[in-house]
Simulated scan of single mutants.
Amino acid sequence: MKILVTGSEGFVGKNLRSELKNRGYEDIFSYDRETDEKLLDKYTKECDFVYHLAGVNRPENYEEFMKGNYGFTSKVLNLLKKHNNQSPVLITSSIQAKLDNPYGRSKKAGEEVIFEYGRETGAEVYVYRLPNLFGKWSRPNYNSVVATFCHNIANDLEIEVHDPEVELTLAYIDDVVEQFINALDDQVVKEDKYCKVPVTHEVKLCKLAELIKSFKESRENLYLPDMGDEFTKKLYSMYLSYLPEDNFSYDLTMHQDERGSFTEMLRTEDSGQISINVSKPGITKGNHWHHTKNEKFLVVSGQGIIRFRDIYSEEVIEYEVSGDKLEVVDIPTGYTHNIENTGDTNMVTVMWANECYDPDNPDTYFLEV
């Protein structure tokens, strides 16, 4: 299948093209404002499907709205008619097509001309009235408040929240692209004559700003955002794409002594924390037990022995562990335990605890194994 994508270098175009390639579509005709206009005639002659994503959002004058959103759409459709090419055409419109403003009127005109084209030629047409979109490669300080907030907060710039109570309806770019690719097989979700993305998210502007700020703070307090919430998960993925290239990494606090080090990596509100423990050769750590706190140990480098003893028993249980054979060892409650490095190199252990460390309630009691 040969696929034409207009607006190929835009936010939606880049995400769509990358996923089409991921799914094995190789013949993609990319057309953008920098493309030689003569190629559009060739592309509209040969293509089997059209994604018409090109449009004008922020022109220098209002006349460009109609020229870009109606005029260019008409040009693409006329070229398809010229070549008697009845390929399906998918076009991106906007929920603002309902509004009586220059942008809305231009998007509405684009909708009408494509519906007329479908009636005249019999070609399948898909018109998506999209809400505000968010996701990677969205341009900040352009037409997306989400991109602007992510970019500014990630780069230590101020944001402006004019009306905190404004509620946004947002669609995530991966959900949009999924629907667009489904259209290749005529698998679309329709509401009346319009196609729609069934998964959207409602969020107030103040909540949006608060969430993105919490992503930045997570590098300091180590609390991972709530990945069980779909919107938070998607927004966090977007936020990371706006980090400055020299700021992908961040330091952790290493608690070091003659035995090695202990470093917290992640904290969560409901799933505990993950830490990295480094033990030097011959060193034994632990010799304590817990009432409710439980842990999982995973030695990823070096070798050692994990020992357990029920605090009311004299029997010692041993597990040999090594980075050569990755296995998780559960640390049960009511058992005093320790871990000894029996090798000649540092032993590195990934440790998970079911609760974050609380110095006021550590639930940790010293007792030799």
Rank of each mutant, 00 (worst) to 15 (best):
95 I>R: 05
19 E>G: 04
226 D>V: 09
67 K>N: 10
113 V>W: 03
131 P>I: 12
131 P>Y: 10
84 N>C: 06
339 I>F: 04
294 N>D: 11
40 L>D: 06
166 V>A: 03
115 F>G: 07
29 F>H: 01
182 N>Q: 12
114 I>G: 01
328 V>I: 13
10 G>P: 07
133 L>T: 04
360 D>P: 01
297 F>C: 10
276 I>L: 12
335 Y>K: 13
353 A>V: 15
126 Y>E: 05
109 A>G: 00
30 S>T: 09
108 K>P: 00
339 I>S: 06
41 D>F: 15
263 T>R: 02
304 G>W: 05
281 P>K: 05
31 Y>S: 09
137 W>Y: 13
80 L>Y: 05
147 A>V: 12
36 D>F: 11
341 N>E: 05
151 H>L: 07
319 Y>G: 01
115 F>E: 12
277 N>F: 08
58 R>G: 01
169 T>D: 15
52 H>L: 02
199 V>C: 08
317 I>M: 07
314 E>H: 02
94 S>K: 09
11 F>A: 06
178 E>A: 10
134 F>K: 11
101 N>I: 03
253 T>P: 03
36 D>N: 15
7 G>P: 07
222 L>I: 00
320 E>Y: 05
62 Y>N: 10
111 E>S: 03
284 T>K: 02
237 S>Q: 07
280 K>R: 14
191 E>Q: 08
120 E>I: 14
219 R>V: 04
285 K>H: 01
231 F>M: 15
169 T>E: 15
245 E>Q: 01
256 Q>V: 02
338 N>W: 13
340 E>G: 11
11 F>D: 02
35 T>L: 13
107 K>H: 12
369 V>A: 03
204 K>H: 09
